[in-house]
Computed example of a mutant assay.
Amino acid sequence: MDKPPVLLVDRLSFGWPGRTLFQELSFNIPPGVSLIRGDDGCGKSTLLGLMAGDLQAQGGTLSVHGVRLDQHHDAYRQQVFWIDPQTEAHDAISAAGYLDSLSHHYPAFSRAALTELVAGFTLRPHLDKPLYMLSAGSKRKVWLCAAFAAGTALTLIDQPFAALDAPSIRFLLELLQDAADHPSRAWVLADYLAPEGVPLARVLTLGETPGG
């Protein structure tokens, strides 16, 4: 029997001034690992931002396990992890300070999982450094530790393998292989290619329309 979807997107519409990007787009995301793929400018990152509630849709509804974003904004956001990998919003605080703050935002945050993730991504030597001092790869590792420790029903990750070293790529693939079997949580990756060896629950291919 099919597992109930984690995310339902119904007739989603969004565009930038003078440019329609999504027009009544409907899909669902089941448990496991799903992929949003497409070329540069097709809207992958924009769609993640809409699914996260960071961007406001111009039409349609989004719901996670029956909680609608437009009706219960805070409850929806607590069930979704997303961070723009290019953000500088947390640069002034240390990696440890950012990771410690997650427990205030995500009720199912797991400190035990975080400890294992920090070790797996060899991030411990960088925990006390402010985020602005970290390399692009090390900042990515911080975001990935957060993503997998948050314990949210829906986890959104933009270009998960960008700037990672080979051991970290292998560790991330192992995490995603485990995630693929989860009965009630979903991970959505936005990338150009499917992750090697990871069974995908759903693949959504976006067109060539500019915008994301």
Rank of each mutant, 00 (worst) to 15 (best):
D2K: 12
D2H: 15
K3A: 15
P5F: 09
V9K: 10
V9R: 08
L12P: 07
S13Y: 10
G15E: 06
G18Q: 07
T20S: 14
E24F: 05
L25R: 09
F27A: 05
I29A: 15
G32W: 08
S34N: 09
S34T: 02
L35H: 02
D40R: 15
G41H: 11
L47T: 10
L50K: 05
A52G: 11
D54I: 09
Q56R: 15
A57W: 04
L62I: 12
L62E: 09
V64E: 06
V64S: 09
H65R: 15
G66S: 10
G66E: 06
V80A: 07
D84L: 06
P85A: 06
A95E: 03
A96D: 13
S103K: 14
Y106Q: 08
S110G: 00
T115E: 15
V118W: 01
G120D: 01
G120Y: 03
T122C: 14
L123A: 05
R124N: 14
P125Q: 05
H126V: 08
D128Y: 01
K129C: 11
Y132E: 12
Y132D: 13
L134A: 03
L134G: 02
S135H: 10
K141E: 01
V142F: 06
V142E: 08
C145Q: 05
A147R: 00
A149G: 03
A149E: 01
A150D: 08
A150G: 06
G151R: 04
G151P: 03
A153K: 06
A153R: 08
L156W: 07
D158V: 02
F161N: 02
S168K: 02
S168I: 04
I169P: 01
R170N: 15
L176W: 04
L176Y: 02
A180G: 12
P183D: 13
W187Q: 04
V188N: 07
L189I: 15
A190P: 07
D191W: 01
D191M: 00
Y192T: 13
L193R: 14
A194K: 05
E196S: 11
A201I: 06
L204V: 13
L204K: 01
L206H: 01
G207C: 04
P210E: 11
